[in-house]
Amino acid sequence: MEKLMAEPRRAFQQPVSLPPAPDGRVKIAARGVDVFYDRFQALKGITLEIREKAITALIGPSGCGKSTFLRALNRMNDLVPGARLEGVIQIDGDDIYAPGLDVVALRKRVGMVFQAPNPFPMSVFDNIAYGPRVHGVRDKHQLAEIVESSLQRAALWDEVKDKLREPALALSGGQQQRLCIARVLAVEPEVVLMDEPCSALDPISTLRIEELMRVLRENYTIVIVTHNMQQAARVSDETGFFLMGELIEFGPSSGLFTTPRDRRTEDYITGRFG
């Protein structure tokens, strides 16, 4: 690890196991997106396209707007008083800020994993079953099936299959975060947003989450905000670099990390600031 850090340029080469960025169809399209918090403009004219069944990483220094952009994708910013968005964000061609749009239905399609693991203070089972129950699933067998398959997809089943009735908060931090991922998968989303999902985890747990992301990529569109550039380089197909509310550079991760086009991107990924 230390040796890799010392040679940043070569460190960011893509692992061979990951196939090249897919030419999949566009899942999410943002055009000229501005976000304001009262008078402060957090995002300035963001335009980018996120591909289906790929991992898109958003990087940049603190306060650059990457998390704001992520939260705009499932309208979590609506919860912040004084937040306002201009421009267009489409998922599968539907404007998600169209008047009268069902935000609840949108959030079912676009799940979110947060920075710190935030399981509910309930059992493992009830955590996973929460989403399906909220969406009207009552049948016990059906719930049990959803819980098992979600935990399996999140690579947590073997560790917790005997602890389903135990409090989720008794699990380790890394297990809690995979539980939160399983909880999101249980509502069958199409897109999974991850807001620095590993920042509160140790390196081993981080590695497991990254492995999990590579597997999930086959079925889900994943957007991840991360502070960790190696992580972005390791797991993502495409990367966007944000700086002071602007999208400086966006493209295949292999290119962005090895031959950045913009000077500011290069300065950031080589550790000159941030």
Partner: peptide, 23 residues
């Protein structure tokens, strides 16, 4: 009650009332 519980619930597509009542 931590804000993170509410975020998790709303993020799963629960309504405000479901979040209030269940979490």
């Amino acid at each position: 009650v931590p804000v993170s519980f509410r975020q998790a619930s709303l993020g799963l597509g629960a309504t405000r009332w479901q979040t209030t009542w269940r979490v």
